[in-house]
Simulated assay, not measured.
Amino acid sequence: MGGDEKYWYNMATGAVEKGFESPAIDRAGPFDTAEEAARAPEILAERSRAWAEEERAEDE
């Protein structure tokens, strides 16, 4: 499945989009489902917390 068939979260508008509707700078994704794309801010925050915890563990 190519990126044009996946779902994206538009960071500027908060809209879920299918395919490359918006400029890349505004898109987060890709996601397999529209529901997953709608949760993009939550998913990105979870990933960011996990990366920060990994970095802290590596620094110790």
Rank of each mutant, 00 (worst) to 15 (best):
E17F: 15
D26M: 05
A34G: 11
A45K: 04
A52M: 06
E60N: 12
E35D: 03
A34K: 06
E54R: 05
E54M: 10
A40S: 00
E17D: 15
R56A: 13
V16G: 04
E60T: 10
A15E: 15
R56Q: 09
F31L: 05
G3K: 07
E58I: 01
A34P: 01
S48T: 15
I43S: 02
E46V: 06
A45V: 02
A45G: 01
E36Y: 12
W51F: 11
A52E: 08
M11Y: 07
A28T: 00
P30S: 13
E55R: 12
L44N: 00
N10K: 02
A50I: 05
R39S: 12
R56P: 07
A57M: 00
D59K: 08
A52I: 03
M11D: 10
M1C: 09
A50V: 03
E35F: 02
A38R: 07
A15D: 11
V16N: 01
G3M: 10
F31K: 02
E54F: 08
E55A: 14
E35C: 01
G29S: 07
V16D: 06
P41V: 05
W8N: 04
T13W: 15
R49N: 14
T13C: 13
M1W: 14
R27M: 12
A38D: 08
R39W: 09
E36N: 08
R39N: 11
N10Y: 15
D32K: 13
F20S: 00
E55Y: 13
I25D: 05
E54A: 11
A28M: 05
E54C: 08
A24D: 07
N10G: 10
W8A: 09
A34I: 08
V16F: 07
G2W: 15
E17C: 13
D4R: 11
E53G: 09
P41M: 02
S22K: 04
G3F: 12
S48M: 15
A37F: 14
W51N: 03
Y7C: 06
R27G: 01
A57N: 00
A28F: 10
E60A: 11
A12V: 06
K18M: 15
A24K: 02
L44P: 06
G2P: 15
W8L: 04
R27L: 12
R49V: 14
A28C: 04
G29K: 04
P30V: 08
D26T: 00
E5C: 00
M1I: 08
E60Q: 13
E17H: 10
D59L: 12
Y7R: 03
A38F: 08
T33L: 03
R56L: 11
D4H: 14
A45T: 02
T13K: 09
D26F: 09
G19Y: 12
R56H: 08
